[in-house]
Write a protein that binds this DNA or RNA. Sequence first.
RNA 1: GUGGUCAUAGCUCAAUAGGUAGAGCACCAGGUUGUGAUCCUGGCGGUUGGGGGUUCAAGUCCCCUUGGCCACCCCA
Length: 421
Amino acid sequence: MPAFQTSPGMRDILPPESERWRRFDAVFAAVAESAGYGQLMTPVLEDLGVFARLGEGGEGVSKEMYQFTDKGGRDVALRPEVTASVCRAFAQHRPTTPWKVWYSGPNFRYEKPQRGRYRQFDQVGIEVVGVDDPMLDVEVIALADEFFRALGLRRITLIVNSLGEPEDRTRYIEALRAHFESFPEGLSATSRETLLRNPLRVLDSKRPEDQAAIAAAPQIADFHSPAAAEHFEAVQAGLRALGVDFVVEPKLVRGLDYYRRTIFEFQSDALDSAQNALGGGGRYDGLVEALGGPPASGVGFALGLDRTLIACDEEGVFQVLPRRLDAFVVDVTGGLQAAAITAALRAAGLTADRGFDNRSMKAQMKLANRSEAAYAVIIGEDEVAAGTVVVKPMDGGEQTNVPRSELVARIQRPTGTDRHD
RNA sequence: GUGGUCAUAGCUCAAUAGGUAGAGCACCAGGUUGUGAUCCUGGCGGUUGGGGGUUCAAGUCCCCUUGGCCACCCCA
């Protein structure tokens, strides 16, 4: 038993899995940057106040926040999400709009860990501040959709809804509360508690005894102001124009108070229905202002690496193969030769590893095999004397003895292709 | 936060009814005094998650604790 191990809900990502994570980021960056988004890097630690507004939504928010007082007496928290930090950054730096950014990194929530749910978890996302145009909602959603496709995922469902303007939303919540409180068949005990805190969330319940009340509940669309309805229509028209499949789900809600108008979520039907949401987002007009900035609308989404990778596993896509080395240098003359040869190979842009500890040729060949190098470069006393090296294809091909000066060329241009010699 | 379940070698797992802890894989070495991936032989490897208790004797039974997993809660 090791004296120390990772704290609950936190883990090491070892190679080669870490390579997959890095490629995940790279694919996301490529999609976002193709649309003019730049990477924003914010601190993982911020003043508690930056996230305080999130607490107005569910009580879970404040309960699950990693917060503490630092040595200067400042109340701080590890970020539970990035959207609030983006808005804080906008308010702080006042960049010109539209401000289009993407991000990737760890977030922290003090939850009870289980598979696909960690206390430190990575998310990628994009946010745009300062544009009201529904076509921007369309762009953001389409980029998320494009990203899932870039990973190779096919069994993805996009669901969208609109919470309307803040006033619409407020009126709807009151109507919902009234409906649920007076519904004859009542609600489950859990939903009755949810109702006190966040009536919208009751719509999310999957408990059978709640379904009758939910089915009979008022529809948000009936509360949309003309402007909100028009915005939502425009979003749908834009998605259709781009050929992005979607389903309007009137019962889709998001837990936080800051969401306005468009909200959306991507689900994978390759996962259990209980946790099939890979990511989501929406509009949060007003959040920047709430954080001390100018009035500015915002829209964005975030998605989690863990669940998305699980979905990839389920669909058998985005399987990252370990990187192969070009060459593995086996030196049984003490190791100095290998130092020079690997340096030369690397300088030529090739990837090369070598054996250490002056182990036997057999042992070094086993390492070469394990490294999955394309070639073993073997050097012994004979080769040193002759100024040559043995180049052996590890796939079983014939090994050849080549002058040391031709080694790099031989590996860059495999035998059989250099017929002009 | 609530409930359930599990924890044995680096990994995946065995261990009859309490009776000295095993295998496969991996790793190391040799067979092959200059050659991997196959094969053969041998080796390294564990205070059975930790602590306490019952017992002549505990991996096995009891309590506590830590951690994983599952469900609920929550889900930004």
